[in-house]
Amino acid sequence: MVDPVSRRLIKELKDYQKEPNPDLAELSPVSDDNILIWKAVLRGEVDTPYEGGNWILRIEIPKTYPIHPPKIKFLTKICHPNISFKTGEICLDILKTAWSPAWTLQSACMAIRLLLSNPEPTSPLNCDAANLLRCGDFMGYESLVRMYTQLFAINQSSEYEGTS
């Protein structure tokens, strides 16, 4: 008998495989013997400074999922006001207090993708990026983000695989 958490995760995996999402290049468990650790690859949105980048996300699922939210962080370095440049930690309400079982791993990843183009500079994890926005220096902000996208997220994805 499969436990309820695994059963739901298997269903989510099947749903993703049935209808692959072009904005999410990958979404699957890292290894066959542990279904509680997943990896996702986010594609940067077109017409944003993140265009062309691929970011690897590490998803840790608690045994109490979906009552409690998954822990998601960026493995690929990313420059964003609400994402820690050092640890990849993400500040997003649905991953904390606003979580509900109606979210899936896929929809949570898509929410993170949406956060990229809709930053919230009032609750920053990356003060340098947030300060540029708060000062209204959109040009400076965009070129900073574009530089880090170029540096870390374009054709660099393989380097970060396997790190945890």
Partner: peptide, 9 residues
């Protein structure tokens, strides 16, 4: 079920 995604539990 909208939480565990299965029918029998």
């Amino acid at each position: 079920c909208g939480i565990c995604y299965s029918y029998h539990f």
